[in-house]
């Protein structure tokens, strides 16, 4: 046996093994989104489920992201065939109601589903406090780089994607993100020059 050569050969295996060990810390199924930090893709979508007052919007009303500039937008993609969407439904619906009157808009987007199935799902879940829109051809979903539902995008007052949540949102996480985004909104013209951060 030539032990010196053996040792050199053994050392060459180390990087490979380290690579695999490191691989365990990664989730190969996750696709990192390039959107956070960049301008949120514009959309203009028609409401198909009105939501409940006071957050409701009439069916057929067109929602444009551009019109919501200066306010926080929580954009949730969902579908009736999606199991995890059931988990987060109550959290989203309740949180949206709690934030009534604050500068934040909760919006749902139905992803690759029939409107009838979407409406039936909302009824089955006991209603949705905020409106949901239809997305024909999944154009907006593709614009947002969607690859599974639920996915939730948090858009700040400057119209940038601040954060993307893959999978169901949790109550604490949702409130925390929305609070910090509201706090970062530029102050109203009435009270200039004070930047408040909670």
């Amino acid at each position: 046996m030539n032990w010196k050569r053996s040792l050199i050969a053994a050392v060459t295996a180390v990087p490979v093994i380290l690579l695999f060990a490191w691989g365990f810390t990664r989730d190969p199924g996750e696709i990192p989104s390039p959107l956070p930090g960049h301008a949120a893709p514009q959309f203009s979508l028609d409401v198909f489920a009105p939501g409940q007052p006071p957050l409701s919007r009439p069916v057929g009303d067109t929602v444009r992201l551009a019109d919501l500039r200066g306010q926080v937008v929580v954009l949730n993609f969902w579908a009736s065939w999606c199991g995890a969407c059931r988990e987060e439904h109550a959290v989203l619906s309740t949180t949206a109601r709690l934030y009534t009157g604050r500068p934040v808009h909760f919006l749902g987007v139905l992803y690759n589903d029939s409107l009838a199935a979407g409406e039936a799902w909302i009824a089955e879940m006991g209603g949705q406090s905020y409106p949901s829109m239809q997305d024909p051809g999944a154009r907006t979903a593709i614009d947002y780089g969607l690859y599974g539902v639920p996915e939730t995008f948090f858009i700040d007052g400057d119209g940038r994607v601040a954060y993307k949540q893959l999978g169901p949102v949790t109550g604490v996480g949702l409130a925390h993100i929305v609070d910090s985004l509201i706090a970062a909104l530029p102050p109203k013209p009435a009270a200039p020059a004070t930047k408040s951060r909670s």
């Binding site: 046996m1 030539n2 050569r5 040792l7 050969a9 053994a10 060459t12 295996a13 490979v16 695999f20």
Partner: peptide, 17 residues
């Protein structure tokens, strides 16, 4: 795989002469 890889390399390199 670490055992197999290192073991195999050690054995083959050691016998290469």
């Amino acid at each position: 795989i670490a055992l197999v890889l290192i073991g195999a390399l050690v054995m083959v390199a050691g016998n290469s002469d």
